[in-house]
Design a protein around this nucleic acid. Structure first.
Lengths: 332, 332
DNA sequence: TTGTAAGCGTTATCAC
DNA sequence: GTGATAACGCTTACAA
């Protein structure tokens, strides 16, 4: 691999002149600048980012730790993160955990050893967040909130999103509302469920937990749960699914039972499903402000990197939006 | 940031002992090993991958350059690449170009400066491939084939895939087959179109190019093209779309015209659409062997990294598979 | 089993 | 405007 010394030798100047051409072109005469640029191009030389990072103590790399890149919400969000990071000349290093706590810690350690300048994390465990605090690396928590540990965060107001969704169902006359949720261990899950319960309470709907199922955010469990729920003697009239994966499971279950979404069962979900734009009936869903979430996460993280001693706290709650499709009908 | 020296000081041993604990635990007494592990954990020390890479001249990082991470085929493929790379203790650095040649070269340069051990690239331009050859970095070309430059590659037999798809349409009685293709500049596009033409020729279907449209792999152009084609006095009876993005555009156009896929117009595409598993009628499509493509790309690249002087050539053509759904009907 | 010294490819600092 | 030298954090080779 070519080094700066090779270029220096070829150009018959010192390594410092090469280094200046790369970093401070104005501190070098126009003529040598031209010549050296040509030499570098001709040789096919690229400065070693590794060596630069070592001496500069900056990698211009940001780490991202997230639970599932296959989830529509997360991959759109990641795409947005990339674009913003790129605009500040930062590269992203991705760690996808598959909702596995062990992987999460491994990824954080890996990013730590890669000396990323900062980390954007959607945490599953508070251990990782504690680790980050201890490591003194700048980081921002996204999408979730870990009550036990202090951190800066950017997240959707999941409570408001769920509240609005369930209000909408109730306004259509639904009282028997099924909820497909997770195990209640992470913030979005807890908040969405709280939003659901509060609407039920507000409208004095009794026995709100009658049709609530923990499907662990998995398609197959949602599929089974829906088949079971709709097979009951007194089935729910609407289903509220807490993520797009479970919404897919729900749709498959309804299709397999030859029932009709909207006519037989209303459906509302968090996040757009894959193929949202062509699926019919269009599924009504809660749209998270993905672009805003990404932009703010990057901006806050970069501020923290630039001002490591600032004690400023960043706590952002962004409002989601209910996108009304055609998957919810009036109760007869 | 903590260094190996801090740990050495704390543990009252030399830096070499720490280095050995990290890299050759068996060359250190069990007792000191235990103690030092605890010290490192207690301090929250992580060896600097940067410094390690500099001295080892290996980063254990692979670069991936691809045209569009939003495309279902490419993001599934990337996921597969990640899993395989991880199983060999490699990290991936992603460069998504958006089909823009300038970005492609920038990404390759960035990966070069990051001193990745090798690159897996889906090239758009032969300049980048020439650059890679010149740089002497090990690399594997995926999905595409650049006739002008020599390289190792792993790709789908696009010709065979298209041939099978069109044969299927003809077997249902279709003669008026529309093709939504790209500009004919990249290998898959060329090969798929060649497959189409050969089937038309084989069955003596005249004027095969009558319904062929260049939609540049874009949804909006496909949408317009389909609206135009289906509005003709003598419309096609089937549409063959060369990627999932254009298939989406096609579906939207058909929906907007209140026509029925299968009954009014048959549809077949390359690659699964987002939401493939729930969309009805199920779209018939050509499935590329994504997992195999990914596994082989990683394996070949690692072999080239391990044996930089080997002159062995790797050229792999993998057969795709036609997945028959319900989107194609017999011609009345 | 443990330690010393040189060097990986850059840049910061200071001198010319 | 240009150059010599030390340093960044680690490992390899050699010595004790």
């Amino acid at each position: 691999m070519l080094t700066i010394r090779d270029v220096a030798k070829k150009a018959k100047v010192s390594v410092m002149t090469i280094s200046r051409v790369i970093n401070n072109p104005d501190k070098v005469s126009a003529k040598t600048y031209q010549e050296i640029c040509q030499t570098m191009e001709h040789l096919g030389y690229q400065p070693s980012h590794i060596a630069q990072s070592l001496v500069r103590k900056r990698t211009y790399t940001l780490g991202v730790v997230m639970p599932n890149i296959k989830n529509t919400f997360f991959n759109s969000w990641f795409r947005s993160l990339e674009e913003h990071a790129k605009s500040f000349n930062y590269t992203l290093l991705l760690g996808d955990t598959g909702e596995d706590i062990k992987h999460e810690m491994n990824h954080v350690r890996l990013l730590h050893s890669h000396r990323v300048d900062g980390i954007i994390i959607v945490p599953h465990s508070c251990d990782t967040v504690s680790y980050l605090i201890k490591s003194k690396m700048p980081f921002v928590v996204a999408d979730r909130f870990i009550p036990k540990v202090k951190s800066d965060y950017v997240l959707t107001d999941h409570y408001a999103g769920a509240f609005e969704a369930v209000e909408y169902l109730v306004s259509l006359g639904h009282k028997k509302i099924a909820v497909l949720k997770g195990p209640g261990l992470i913030y979005p899950d807890i908040e969405r469920f709280r939003g659901f319960l509060d609407v039920m309470k507000k409208h004095n709907i009794k026995d709100p937990e009658l049709y609530v199922r923990n499907c662990d955010f998995q398609e197959s469990l949602a599929y089974e749960a829906v088949k079971d729920l709709l097979g009951r003697r007194d089935p729910p009239t609407a289903i509220f699914s807490f993520n797009s994966i479970m919404t897919i499971g729900t749709i498959k279950a309804v299709q397999s039972m030859k029932l009709s979404i909207r006519d037989n069962i209303s459906l509302i979900g968090f996040d757009a499903i894959p193929g949202q734009s062509i699926f019919r009936p269009a599924i009504t869903y809660v749209l998270q402000p993905i672009e805003d979430l990404a932009r703010n996460a990057v901006q806050i993280l970069l501020k923290k990197i630039e001002h490591p001693n600032s004690r400023k706290k960043y706590r952002l709650f962004l409002k989601p939006k209910l996108i009304i499709g055609e998957s919810c009908g009036y109760v007869k």
